[in-house]
């Protein structure tokens, strides 16, 4: 589904990713772990199409050259990024934002756009599953939300947009145990044959709730070790030092 081959990324002449390669097949859950500054967020930014990076290498998503697609086209084809720092957009109602983006994605996929009633039914159902306070859906997008609420809002958007590849950029940071479980439930509910996940995290604790198929250790812009779920536990014990 996603094939990254020899990806190099620079920002203002500083090299951040260095011959980074990764393959994700349909249905797989990959976790990327690494210390601060190892290039984790750069990876999610590049995959989602954020501008400002100098990039070389190949990234193929579902048979298309990813770099030829605009940010929104990537979203239409099923890439979803749960942002590390979800943005606040003043004046824009959360529900309206969700409906607009869902219909943009559905339209691009040739699916019928949802009317207000259908949408509200869907969003209510998903919000309930995630124990997301419905009242917040009528507030301005992320404005005045706590850190945890913002992250839950990302997961809510994810379950509604039903992406093929979900990238979770340090979604676990700043979450308490209950919120962590809710986030994990959201991810697990989407876990199907064709849906893949790339979980970027600093700590192992989220992986207690979402069992990854593969764990990769990212250091200085490169994967230095790959393994199964057990690698995360080893990492937690030994620390990143032992891999450098």
């Amino acid at each position: 589904m996603l094939k990254i081959n020899n990806l190099n990324a620079k920002i203002e002449n500083k090299s951040i990713l260095n011959k980074f390669s990764l393959n994700i097949n349909p249905g797989e859950v990959h976790a990327i772990m690494g210390p601060n500054g190892s290039g984790k967020s750069t990876l999610s930014n590049i995959l989602s199409g954020k501008k400002g990076y100098e990039v070389t290498g190949d990234v193929v998503f579902d048979g298309s050259d990813l770099f030829k697609l605009e940010t929104e086209e990537r979203a239409h084809r099923g890439i979803f990024l749960a942002f590390q720092y979800p943005l606040e957009i003043p004046g824009v109602n959360t529900n309206i934002f969700l409906k607009t983006s869902l219909n943009a994605v559905r339209k691009a996929r040739g699916e019928k756009e949802l009317d207000a009633i259908e949408f509200l039914k869907l969003v209510k159902e998903k919000a309930k599953e995630l124990k997301f306070d419905e009242e917040k859906l009528n507030r301005q997008l992320n404005v005045g939300f706590s850190g945890g609420e913002k992250k839950k809002n990302e997961i809510l958007q994810m379950t509604i947009l039903n992406p093929k590849l979900s990238i979770l950029d340090e979604t676990d940071s700043g979450l308490d145990i209950d919120a962590l479980r809710i986030v994990a439930d959201g991810v697990n509910s989407l876990r199907k044959e064709n849906n893949s996940f790339l979980i970027i995290t600093h700590y192992q604790r989220l992986l207690n709730y979402i069992k990854p198929d593969f764990v990769h250790v990212l250091m200085n812009g490169k994967i230095v070790k790959s393994g199964g779920a057990e690698l995360a536990i080893e990492l937690e014990k030994k620390g990143y030092e032992s891999f450098s």
């Binding site: 989602s48 940010t71 979803f80 957009i89 004046g91």
Partner: peptide, 29 residues
């Protein structure tokens, strides 16, 4: 902000719709 645009585009909006949405938010009052 570039970040706001990126966020909206990541959710599938094209740049003009994203601007429209943000501007309407700006004008909401």
């Amino acid at each position: 902000s570039e970040d706001q645009l990126h966020y909206c585009q990541q959710r599938g909006l094209n740049s003009e719709d994203a601007v429209g949405l943000i501007v309407n938010g700006f004008c909401k009052e």
